[in-house]
Design a protein around this nucleic acid. Structure first.
Length: 713
RNA sequence: GGGCGAUUAGCUCAGUUGGUAGAGCAGCGCUUUUACACAGCGAAGGUCAGAGGUUCGAAUCCUCUAUUGCCCACCA
């Protein structure tokens, strides 16, 4: 006579079963698709968005792991060659600045005191430590990742991929070095891309004034200090007020510095703003730089990398911070009687995302990716911009929810060349060497004496943009490349759609002539119960590790999935997680009861008509959940299994059938139905709640059955 | 300035193609030799933000309004 296993009589203790179960899965080798049982033809691939090695996992990572693991487990159970590929991101600027701050705090030293080599060693040490923590936390979420393929955006293989890509683009004329206005972060002492800036609303003053008494046109500016670098005044070609002055040139003294101003006409000028005349400062404004290019004007830089004035004839200005220089010049305008009005305005000032420093637009020699340049792409003339548009327009890649496709297109339309060089040390060094006037770009250093490598490193998104194929062994033509690329899905937050998703599409379509993934699934931001963004400084951040220990990982995963549709933010409260802890308990107790009441059943019996109807009703629910998973509606599928198990299986079927079993009315059919339903529900539960389902499977499965994680859906 | 969402029970949110409004939590009543009190049964609670339109029929589609959130932006 069989008996209910002793383990089951104790209450469910998530904390004690999770670690051994994960170890069992890992040892089985099934995380690696090469080892999966049965014949598997079709691949299903997700590459994990690599977490930054700057710290520990937060709830945003938990939601990403929950969604992706649910999909991976479902696909694995469906018989796909299911590959979920893990990795971490070196996150160049972010990581270097974390370590720099730490060193400054602990030792009072800057990176320049320490030196490039030593600094890099220290950052690597930190990154390694951080990676260890992150990987352990990832495992504890139950993530069924193929650890044998673990990658890092800055390891040797990825470095080869980066060098190869750089060279290929350089040879195609798509990477160039040029003098341009870039976003200079005076605090971080580096350039950053447009996407790494954050507009910050500030109060400012719009000053309207003339350069001198004899100059005929008044201009408006919120930054009068830059006006010592002016070379022109631009007006709209149709502006009748200024027509007579166009083409004339005026030389005068401005705040003790000689300036020469040419009056020009350009359509970029808005007639109705301010006086309708724009003082052109090519060196300190991107729009002015473009005007300078169009009109062949000179350019004078008056602000340096430390956001201080320099090189001016008026010695009093030199060395002044821009804000001090502003006051100085406004005061000078007042005394001279040149200032006609001051108006309070709110303006959006670009700041650096990482350091918070106010961006100083400066002309600098940097490396760029040319997104508008026509080139020969597998026999066709196109641009990188077009490739990015086509991938989504053709629906080869679709974005879920689809409203983000508009956001994506809008971003591409306004795209400018991507500045990829950074003046930091941590990252992929630019594979370019110089010797006098000679320039060599290659995957390896050139032979011969006297070559010096470019000091700069690459934007971190340059390497993560290649993630779908650099992780599969590119540039080598590996087997993995053939089987697993293009990947099936990328699942991430909408905040990095430009940084990452768009760049992956760029690199993959460019280098492979292949989309990187068929679907983009965007999850929402996790907020606290009051709807506030979770952050360390607010102190409202929930630690997934703690929640997982307290309520069980399955409960946390369910709380993150149920009701959280794609693209919508999720308000997470402990109450919600608690509700799924109660559900775990319910599953545990119901399973024990079913096992207890069916121990005397030797073999399945035929079902009565009534039981067949109940079983068929379950099959409908099952099909419904399958369709939800197929269509990435995890928020609905998870809720349906919860609802069926509790409301239908426990409250109705078990209640009626336990009476039938006790009273011996069609007992064998009742027992068979309970067992059948329990078994099949564990299968459906598994992707969502892998731990408790796998644990219970031990007692429900037949001897011939394998682990639940590879049981057919 | 442009774009995209949200508004459904006290709170947090679902509601897949239009067909009598759903869940969790909180609260109310009853139930304890019951698989589970980490539970069960029952009751209560909503003009689906407002107005107009399309339709036999609208939370769902269209228009406008209000409130609110997010993204983008080189009006100096």
């Amino acid at each position: 006579m069989k008996q209910v296993p002793e383990q089951l009589t104790k209450p469910f203790d998530a904390a004690s079963v999770e670690a051994p179960l994960y170890e069992m899965w890992e040892k089985s080798g099934y995380f690696n698709p090469d080892n999966l049982p049965g014949e598997r033809k079709e691949a299903y691939t997700i590459v994990l968005p690599p977490p930054n090695v700057t710290g520990t996992l937060h709830t945003g990572h938990a939601i990403m792991l929950g969604i992706q693991d649910t999909l991976m487990r479902y696909k694995r159970m469906q018989g796909y060659k299911a590959l979920w590929l893990p990795g971490t991101d070196h996150a160049a600027i972010a990581t270097q600045s974390v370590v720099e701050k730490k060193i400054y705090k602990e030792e009072g030293k800057s990176r320049h005191d320490i030196g490039r080599e030593e600094m890099l060693a220290r950052i690597n040490e930190f990154a390694l430590e951080s990676q260890k923590t992150i990987l352990a936390q990832t495992r504890s979420m139950g993530a069924s990742l193929d650890w044998s393929r673990l990658a890092f955006t800055l390891d040797d293989k990825r470095n080869l991929a980066v060098r190869t890509m750089f060279k290929k683009m350089y040879d195609d004329g798509l990477i160039y070095r040029g003098q341009r206005i870039v976003n200079w972060d005076p605090k971080g002492q580096t350039t950053i891309s447009d996407d790494e800036t954050v507009a910050e609303e500030r109060k400012g003053t719009l000053y309207t004034f003339k350069y001198s008494k004899d100059f005929p046109i008044a201009i408006s500016s919120t930054r009068p200090e830059t006006k010592v670098g002016d070379v022109a005044v631009a007006v709209h070609p149709d502006d009748e007020r200024y027509k007579e002055y166009v083409g004339k040139e005026y030389s005068m003294m401005f705040a003790g510095c000689p300036i020469t101003i040419k009056v020009i006409a350009d359509t970029a000028v808005e007639k109705d703003f301010g006086t309708g005349a724009l003082g052109v400062t090519p060196a300190h404004s991107a729009i002015d730089w473009d005007i300078k290019e169009r009109h062949g004007l000179p350019s004078r830089q008056v602000i340096n990398e430390y956001a201080k004035m320099f090189g001016l004839e008026n010695e009093e200005l030199n060395g002044k911070k821009v804000t001090e220089a502003r006051e100085y010049i406004v005061e000078w305008l007042r005394t001279e009687g040149l200032l006609t009005s001051e108006e309070e305005v709110t303006q959006n000032i670009p700041t650096a995302e990482r350091t918070g420093g106010v961006i100083e637009p400066l002309p600098k020699l940097q490396w760029f990716v040319a997104v508008h340049k026509t080139f020969n792409h597998f026999g066709k003339e196109t641009t990188l911009k077009n490739l990015m548009i086509q991938a989504v327009e053709s629906k080869e890649t679709s974005i879920i929810p689809d409203r983000f496709e508009k956001v994506y297109f809008h971003w591409i339309e306004n795209l400018r060349d991507w500045c990829i060089s950074r003046q930091i040390w941590y990252g992929h060094r630019i594979p370019v060497w110089y010797k006098g006037d000679e320039v060599h770009c290659g995957t390896e250093a050139p032979t011969g004496e006297g070559w010096v490598q470019d000091e700069d490193t690459l934007d971190t998104w340059f390497s993560s943009g290649m993630w779908t194929f650099s992780t599969l062994g590119w540039p080598e033509q590996t087997n993995d490349m053939k089987i697993y690329h293009p990947t099936s899905l990328v699942e991430t937050g909408p905040d990095i759609i430009f940084f990452w998703v768009a760049r992956m599409i760029l690199f993959s379509t460019y280098a492979l002539n292949e989309i990187p993934f068929k679907h983009v699934y965007l999850h929402g931001l996790v907020r606290d119960a009051q709807g506030r963004k979770m952050s360390k400084s607010l102190g409202n951040a929930l630690d997934p590790r703690e929640l997982s220990l307290k309520y069980g990982t399955d409960s946390l995963r369910m709380a993150l999935l149920v009701g959280n549709g794609p693209g919508n933010d999720l308000k997470l409260s402990e109450d919600k997680i608690k509700a799924y802890k109660l559900f775990s308990n319910k599953i545990w107790n119901a399973s024990r009861f079913v096992l207890d009441r069916t121990v005397d059943l030797e073999s399945p019996a035929p079902l009565t008509t009534e039981d067949t109807a109940l079983y068929d009703a379950w099959r409908v629910v099952q099909a419904d959940i399958t369709s939800d998973l197929e269509n990435y509606r995890l928020h609905l599928g998870s809720e349906k299994i919860y609802d069926y198990f509790w409301k239908t299986f426990c409250d109705q079927i078990i209640e009626t059938h336990k009476v039938r079993i006790a009273e011996d009315k069609d007992k064998a059919s009742a027992q068979t139905l309970l067992m059948k339903l329990l078994r099949e529900q564990l299968i459906v539960l598994h992707p969502f709640m892998p731990f408790i389902s796998e644990e219970l499977w031990k007692y429900v499965k037949d001897d011939a059955d394998d682990l639940l994680m590879v049981t057919r859906w």
